[in-house]
Write a protein that binds this DNA or RNA. Structure first.
Lengths: 309, 309
DNA sequence: GGCCGGTAATACGTGTTGCCTATCATAGTC
DNA sequence: GACTATGATAGGCAACACGTATTACCGGCC
């Protein structure tokens, strides 16, 4: 096996074509260098240098191997530098599972700032529902996940990023839509008899449960007429008059849809305002230094605020 | 400094993610491997592996460095293979100084066969006059030289490749041209009073001297009307009627020029036929294994024959 | 809950090897 | 012909890579 020590020694000898000077540059004695080069040539199986008593010259194979020696050490040095930058958290890749980020201005701003601050870091964004995010996190497929509250295994850490109000989405021609026009909160209990459209429970059990609980607190169990995985699809169903929907405020910020109006919900007596959290989660044993950096930036950007409308 | 031993050890540990199995694959004991990896990490300056008592995993920087380790060893292995092929004379580069090869069919055939037999060898052909070839050979700029006979320093080896007749090139309307038409040799002495065109002495002193000596033997000193470096130019001058010229037979084989006819020379009494040699020369201390190969092929192709007309 | 199997780290001894100093051999130089 | 420059060889030493023995610790299992 050819050690890099031998490569370094060979390079200097090839550059100097003089064992004494080369040995001096290597801070070693000439005999040791002669031995090292002899060992190198024995391992290579061919003569890399021709030595007369007066001069040293490279053979053609030696010239070819010199290129290899340079290339090998360059590859190694560059790779060490790169790996050090990865270890220092200024290079590498951060894979992020997210919900649709359309309405989350502070998160988008964080991503932009992160990319600007760490141009050597590749950001890999993958949009998926909360339940799938958790699977990906546990499986190590992603480094961080931006998702709804969910029951988490102990290895998953979580921090709240922001909260946002829950709004009621109504078809424009719905009787309750006049409240929306006047920007007045509506009482959820007034919609006990309405048809509802919901996202499937399996995609985000926590989210689903929270919306259901909200209805229970308002005194009814929603009559679910139809489910749709995507919020945009859900609002399309609302627009078509199939029912009303409870949605996070972020979707109202990013999507103005003809035929749909959004109403704030009047607070229920004895209960705080209905709001949804967006959390950032990560695997406790994931050693990427980028995770902490990303979360720190995210928190300083959002300061756990409620997303404004 | 990171030795390749450490790279190999790290690669196996990263592949196995298990110190015992990795040590077995490396034919060593586990503690030594633990120490080796610890030393690697100390030199790298970052942790490449996270070890719990139960499991081993790569850090992101470790993953990055693993790529580097593979790339480094690949570069080295490929380079060693390449250099070995260079040493074995099946790869590399052979730089050849030549006269114009147009008429030298056996040499061209050798080049073709060489290229076919050794596709990994780059042939670098450089056309230049004999005197310049010798300089290039001594300076190490070329590996072999195909040139006229010349006084050579002791470090230059030489072998004859082939010989070719010296012909007299005449303008078609020259009184002597009728001999050419009947394919009869002409006596050089008959042209004692003719004007001659010659190549400059400096480009090929041996060649020049040989032609002059031929005229002397025929009893005259040629009246040199004009010089031209290129044989094609020289023959152009002949065609225009400026004079006659002594040229190697190869040029007659490769160049048919309106207004010029070539005549064989009648042997002079007591002298062998007038002929020129094409020699292959190389530097005695040039260690390229391709030189011997090339010369062997050249000789087996030509067998020192006289170039046929 | 204590025991056992599995795993990596630590302690310490040893053989290899990379390097040192001293010397030799040889070729070119004054 | 002695001298100088240069690389190779010889012999010794110390660093280090590796081995054996042991420890430390975690999980699963009876």
């Amino acid at each position: 096996m050819i050690e890099t020590r031998l490569l370094r020694q060979f390079i200097v000898v090839a550059e100097e074509l003089h064992f004494h000077r080369a040995a001096a540059r290597l801070h070693m004695a000439q005999p040791a260098l002669s031995q090292a080069i002899a060992k190198l040539e024995a391992r290579l199986g061919f003569a890399a240098l021709t030595r007369s008593r007066r001069s040293v010259a490279l053979t053609p194979a030696g010239r070819a191997f010199l290129e290899t020696a340079y290339a090998t050490l360059d590859t190694l040095d560059a790779g060490i530098g790169r790996a050090r930058r990865v270890a220092d958290g200024v290079a590498g890749r951060l894979t992020i599972a997210t919900l649709s980020l359309a309405g989350y201005t502070p998160v988008l701003e964080t991503l932009r700032a992160f990319r600007r601050a760490l141009p050597e870091v590749e950001l890999d964004l993958r949009e998926m529902p909360s339940a799938r995010q958790l699977e990906a996190l546990v499986a190590g497929e992603v480094d961080v996940a931006l998702m709804r509250e969910l029951a988490l295994p102990a290895v998953i850490e979580t921090r709240q990023v922001l909260t946002e109000a829950i709004l009621l989405a109504l078809p424009t021609d719905h009787p309750g839509a006049k409240s929306a026009a006047s920007n007045e909160p509506v009482a959820l209990g007034d919609f006990a008899e309405s048809d509802f459209v919901f996202t499937p429970r399996a995609l985000g059990p926590g989210y689903h449960h929270q919306l259901m609980a909200l209805c229970q607190a308002a005194g009814f169990t929603p009559n679910i007429q139809q489910e749709a995985a995507q919020l945009t699809t859900l609002l399309g169903l609302v627009a078509s008059g199939l029912g009303v929907a409870l949605v996070p405020a972020s979707i109202a910020r990013s999507l103005r849809l003809d035929g749909v109006v959004f109403c704030a919900l009047a607070p229920l007596p004895g209960r705080p305002d209905a709001s949804l959290a967006l959390n950032v989660n990560w695997h406790r044993e994931n050693t990427s230094p980028l995770i902490e950096d990303f979360i720190t930036r995210l928190k300083s950007q959002t300061r756990n605020e409620t997303l404004p409308l």
